[in-house]
Design a protein around this nucleic acid. Sequence first.
DNA 1: AAAAATTAGTAAGTAACACTCACTCACCAC
DNA 2: GTGGTGAGTGAGTGTTACTTACTAATTTTT
Lengths: 214, 214
Amino acid sequence: MTTSTTLLPANPLSPPGRTRIMNSLVRLLDKKEFNSITTAEIARDAQVTEGLIYKYFSTKKDLLYLVLMELFQQVVNRIESEIAAVDGSHEKLQAFIRTSVASYAGSRVFSKIILLEVRNSQSFFTSNAYGLVRQYSKMIAQILDEGIEAREFAQDIEIGSLREIIFGAIEHTCLTCIIFDRDIDVDRVTGQLCKVLFRGITDNGWAKRKGRQP
Amino acid sequence: MTTSTTLLPANPLSPPGRTRIMNSLVRLLDKKEFNSITTAEIARDAQVTEGLIYKYFSTKKDLLYLVLMELFQQVVNRIESEIAAVDGSHEKLQAFIRTSVASYAGSRVFSKIILLEVRNSQSFFTSNAYGLVRQYSKMIAQILDEGIEAREFAQDIEIGSLREIIFGAIEHTCLTCIIFDRDIDVDRVTGQLCKVLFRGITDNGWAKRKGRQP
DNA sequence: AAAAATTAGTAAGTAACACTCACTCACCAC
DNA sequence: GTGGTGAGTGAGTGTTACTTACTAATTTTT
């Protein structure tokens, strides 16, 4: 279906057992839900004992958060460079959306973790991994800020609300594909989303008749 | 913060022990995450033995799904009557959004279950509870269909994509409030969302200069 | 009205789970 | 060779979701 499971980037500072544990969780997450993966299963796959998992990770969840961080860091880096490469707020917003959608499309495991597995725990929001979410969130806030400043975007829209709308639209679209194991068509999704966001859904003829949109 | 925990609607056909079990889960969900609630805890709160839980519910998750169904049914009924009460596709869509947001705002437990606790399990999507999600989903599909048919909404937007965008925007906005225990301002959220959806975010002056919007 | 079946609920389990702890072994410095 | 350190082991432990065999009361059947 989607791309074959990408392993985590190699890290020579991490002991071999630790690396194998993290990669095993990635492999297993591709097949099943986090809660139904047991520590025994991870240990078996990584060819270590269960005890070693707890040498490197304080809890099973902590292991999950650290895996997420590795994957998320790549995503954040990629988005940062993509939005730096274009000019104009509309273009930057489109680049942000396209790269986000492409990241979800490119890593099923990343998508599953961030969209499905971490939100229901309060502990996530105090973990280091959540720092990356805030970084990600700030990028779009800045795009919107500048767009309103430059009069590209309407003045009467709250940045906070808009950010939630955009994230929600991106995430929910990708989530549906992840859950039902459908491929994500990056161009189509990005196109539809930008169309709605930039122009709204009201038909132009109707708007003129009703005088709703000058 | 939000409204005090609403219990499930009384059901005289349900044995007292069964009713107490479901209400206990609702009470406990208001305070903590589903995964950290134990069956022993539920039984203690409901003043029954653990065994009785498994007389009425096949698994702990199954209990959760049945609680969700009771709450969701009320939501679906409410939305159905609200959108029937107005005319015009813009108005119906606005009513749909407002009532959805109000439902999330009105029941923290309902919001937590549907936005955080059930999505990560494949079993949810084969449960009866998911039938209500499909019913909910069909309501908006119909509004969009009719709106495009009536030329109130633009012709070049895919209903499937648009539905994901709208759901995502509603859910993500409410999710953030639920997670950070903030109140949901139904009017403000609805207003912002409809503004963006109906008109888009592009500033009118800029659109004219660029000729992007006739 | 006795017998049979159904319903509401109990009590004592069990396998599997996340997690702990005391330990070994190999390597390196001095 | 002694002491220290980091990688890894393996046999625990308390809890957890879930099971099973049972009772006691009410309702249904005959």
